[in-house]
Design a protein around this nucleic acid. Structure first.
Length: 856
RNA sequence: GCCGGGGUGGCGGAAUUAGGCAGACGCAGCGGACUUAAAAUCCGCUGAGGGUAAACCUCGUGUGGGUUCGAUUCCCACCCCCGGCACCA
């Protein structure tokens, strides 16, 4: 080993000219061409290693009896044209994790595909006058190439698109599975309808209450639509969120709010003259203050109860007017409250008082029972309404601590007053006692309600999976036989929506069929499925995409699922993630899966902005990966995306930042690549001097830091910062007069290359080869670190006097408290600040700090 | 209104896990080396104020208070920003 030092075979050890010599060496080895380029040949390197990876099939995964699995998945894209660097962030994050886990010894499943059915693809096709199928598959070809050129480590054998018949066959199967388990059903749903065009309209197509084409007044009309019974799982979908420890809190909160569980009471108010009205309330304790009832416009009793034909007339026009208001407007909170008195009265079961019944625009039909009790003293909406129509306002709850409440309306919990025998109870006590009172008399009971509604699945659009159902004149609604799947989406169809129900209804070949039960004439369902149905199970198919006999092989699923790392945008926090959870639970109930949550760990990444807003084609602020590849190489692009900000946060794309990473990668290249002629193998790492120890410490500390940063919530930005520090430190040591033992240097350089490999895989492979390794770096083991090298030998301990750092002691780590005290008090500077003061106390935190506090 | 997240240099961001040297790393900026020159590369400086450019001192993590020898970190109150939900009874 002395040979290295004395023989000056290593030019970078020359006195004081370390860097210069290295450069010379570098040029001698690389010749004129390299000198002119002055940057590493990323183009050559990146193409070379992509080919090698592909030829060696290194990213293909199969179930294994011995190896532990890790399923890394990024949310698959809609194939609409191309990917820009904003999209790339998602895939790069996943790729780093997949590559890291692979080096950690996991059998990594890392697949990718395309969510190709649905409106985005269809609209784009309509705009460009190309068939959705051609447009979609052209996009897929383009995007697949982009993904490959980014060096994403996918098992491309497993790729599929949800619009492939071999895939949607099983989406249709899934529908039938749900139908057979009574989780799919048809029901009437209120939609906008133009009576003259005889068609449903989207909210956007209703302008000032009229049809956008014929200006007729639009009404609400019921249509039969397919729904999935997700509400059956409301309670479990809510409770299991608590088990998802590795999901971001905000996503779980959003799902909780969406499910919207509330505890309340169902109360029957007898109607004077017969019958009763059921209302739902979460504030039974305020019922003595209920001075009116309100029905929603859609409530059946609204048209039944009016006292006189004249009132009925008035109610009718009110209801019509209200329902005509587009949903968007009606749901806006600021709409003024309006209502009409029905001329009828109900009896408050607690006070036996006669209270008026109203219909009003602020009561929702879909929630609770579609009817409420009006308690104006304790609800701001009821308060507004009561003021407008001069209704009684009676206060029945007061705050426990009176100063909490001044003049405003009190809607909190407190103590009851003027509430008969319940007066004096707290709100929560009263709710229990009052619900018992109701139950004894058969007038009500405790109830749990959810905001979650069943999933409306039907779409009157062309580019989707046809719903595999048949309408027989004799047998009614009949499901397609499983053997007849897939029900192919016909290609020769005018797919542009023309206001008729569904484009598929215009294709007689598709529409007309025979009944699977009686063989008689029948018609197919012409609606297609919501695209979210396609994406609700794709992660299962990825684990088992090769079978055509079943949606997936159970043994594949049992091995690879659930997904260990799921990475995607927060825009899917509710829809896709909730639907997927529901589907998995439904499949588990049928014994097809052995788990009830699909995604163990979820990571939601922040967007990439350009010029202050999200990258998008319409804004024209996109940066293409191709541009970055050409100018700096895709490794630079990948690392920039990871370094610019913590991955969960959004960041502004800046060319200067990209250049910073490019400079860094070139520094890495210049640091490592000169060692190509010196086989560093078989030289063990033995530290011989101070500089060696420094480098060993730096190496092991960096390995630890990078490993922990990746493990600990994907802190790639600080991991890369640590790598930069390592490179800076190595350069400094090599430049200095003195020596670095080859074994120590070898360990450092190899660790560095291994550590950067998940971020910049192409560059890492090249450097690994230069360092004379036969194996691909993707097949290498992740480096480990030795704690004994992490601990510093010498520590710098600040001396704090009255909260201010006044001096520093450099000591051997582990110096005793007493010794630290003694040494600190011997310091001249310390004594200067202690002059004329009395020491009140000294606190020593070993190896960290010494703090002295004084008084005069 | 409710729920969640956040507020640190010119900028992106470190340090917040168990309280212990605030500003790691990078960008931008300034100065220098090399070069005929430019680019590239390398070296140095870069929170604010004072001080001779050194030593050194003071202030400083949204605001105000508290706990502590010590607070960006913990507690209380408030302000502001971002995201989600929103007439859900």
């Amino acid at each position: 080993m002395g040979l290295w030092r004395s023989g000056s075979a290593l030019p970078w050890h020359g006195r004081g000219h370390g860097f210069k010599s290295r450069q010379l060496h570098h040029f001698n080895n690389w010749g004129e061409k390299e000198k002119a380029m002055k940057v590493y040949d990323f183009k050559h390197i990146e193409n070379k290693w992509k080919k090698i990876w592909e030829n060696k099939k290194v990213f293909e995964a199969e179930p294994s009896a011995t190896k532990p699995k890790c399923y890394v998945l990024e949310m698959f894209p809609y194939p609409s044209g191309y990917l820009h660097v904003g999209h790339l962030k998602n895939y790069t994050l996943g790729d780093v994790v997949a590559r890291y886990k692979r080096m950690q010894g996991f059998n990594v499943l890392h697949p990718m595909g395309f969510d190709s059915f649905g409106l985005p693809a269809e609209n784009a096709a309509i705009e460009k006058g190309i068939h959705p199928k051609k447009w979609t598959y052209d996009s897929i070809d383009y995007i697949r190439n982009q993904m490959k050129s980014v060096g994403l480590s996918y098992d491309f054998r497993r790729e599929f698109a949800t619009s492939d018949p071999t895939y949607y066959k099983w989406t249709q199967w899934l529908f039938l599975y749900l139908y057979n388990r009574n989780l799919a059903y048809q029901k009437e749903a209120l939609v906008n309808f133009c009576p003259r065009c005889r068609t449903v309209l989207a909210n956007e197509q209703v302008i000032d209450g009229g049809c956008w084409r014929c200006y007729s007044k639009v009404t609400k009309k019921s249509f039969r639509q397919w729904f999935l019974r997700i509400t059956d799982y409301a309670e479990e979908l809510l409770n299991d969120l608590d088990e998802l420890k590795n999901w971001p809190e905000h996503v779980k909160t959003m799902q909780r709010n969406w499910i919207g569980k509330s505890y309340g009471t169902l109360v029957k108010f007898p109607v004077e003259g017969g019958g009763d009205i059921e209302i739902f309330t979460t504030r039974l304790d305020t019922i003595f203050g209920a001075t009116f009832l309100v029905l929603s416009p859609e409530h059946p009793l609204t048209m039944e109860l009016p006292a006189t034909p004249i009132i009925k007339e008035e109610i009718s026009s009110f209801v019509e007017k209200t329902l005509m208001t587009p949903e968007i407007e009606r749901e806006a909170a600021e709409i003024p409250k309006e209502g009409v008195f029905l001329g009828r009265y109900a009896i408050n079961p607690f006070t036996q008082e006669k209270i008026p019944i109203y219909v009003a625009n602020y009561v929702l039909f879909e929630y609770g029972t579609g009817a409420i009790m009006g308690v104006p003293a304790h609800d701001s909406r009821d308060f507004d309404f009561a003021n407008k129509y001069s209704l009684n306002i009676r206060e029945v709850v007061v705050p426990e601590t009176p100063d909490e409440f001044k003049d405003e309306l009190f809607d909190g919990y407190g103590v009851l007053k003027d509430s008969g025998s319940f007066s004096g109870l707290t709100s929560s006590e009263a709710q229990v006692k009052m619900s018992e009172f109701l139950k004894e008399r058969g007038l009500g009971e405790l109830q749990v309600r959810y905001k979650l509604r069943d999933w409306l699945l039907s779409r009157q659009r062309y580019w989707g999976a046809p719903i595999p159902m048949i309408y027989c004149d004799k047998c009614g609604v009949v499901s397609v036989k499983e053997d007849d799947l897939p029900i192919m989406l016909p290609e020769e169809v005018d797919f542009v929506p023309k206001g008729s129900l569904s484009p598929l209804a215009t294709s007689p070949d598709f529409l007309n069929t025979s009944c699977p039960v009686c063989g008689g004439h029948a018609q197919r369902e012409t609606d297609t499925m919501d695209t979210f149905m396609c994406s609700s199970w794709y992660y299962l198919r990825f684990a088992s995409p090769f079978t055509n006999k079943e949606p997936f092989k159970k043994e594949d699923i049992d091995y690879f699922l659930p997904v260990d790392h799921y990475i995607g945008g927060v825009e899917h926090a509710i829809l896709h993630l909730l639907y997927s959870r529901f589907i998995v639970k439904a499949l588990n109930d049928g014994g097809l899966l052995n788990f009830r949550e699909p995604f163990l760990r979820l990571f939601t990444q922040g967007m990439v902005l350009k010029d202050g807003s999200a990258m998008s084609t319409s804004r024209g602020n996109v940066v293409m990966p191709e541009t970055i590849s050409k100018k700096y190489g895709i490794d630079t692009g990948r690392m920039y995306i990871l370094f610019a900000a913590p991955p969960e946060r959004e960041f502004e794309w800046k060319e200067e930042g990209v250049m910073g990473i490019f400079r860094f990668l070139n520094r890495v290249w210049r640091l490592v690549s000169p060692y190509k002629d010196f086989s560093l193998q078989n030289i063990t790492s033995v530290s011989q001097n101070k500089e060696d120890e420094k480098i060993k410490r730096l190496t092991h500390k960096t390995v630890k830091k990078v490993t922990e940063d990746i493990e600990n919530n994907f802190r790639f930005n600080t991991a890369i910062a640590a790598l930069m520090e390592m490179v800076n430190g190595l350069n400094k040591s090599l430049e200095k007069e003195g020596v670095v033992s080859p074994g120590v240097l070898r360990e450092a350089l190899e660790s560095l290359v291994l550590l950067i490999s998940p971020f910049t895989p192409h560059l890492a492979e090249e450097l690994w080869e230069i360092l004379k390794h036969q194996k691909l770096i993707v097949e290498e083991k992740w480096p480990s670190y030795d704690e004994t090298w992490i601990k510093e030998e010498m520590v710098e301990i600040p001396v704090q006097i009255d909260g201010k750092i006044r001096s520093k002691l450099t000591l051997i780590a582990g110096t005793s408290e007493e010794k630290v005290k003694e040494l600190a008090l011997r310091e001249e500077r310390v004594n200067k600040f202690l002059e004329g003061r009395i020491i009140k106390g000294i606190v020593v935190v070993p190896d960290k700090i010494i703090s002295i506090h004084t008084e005069i």
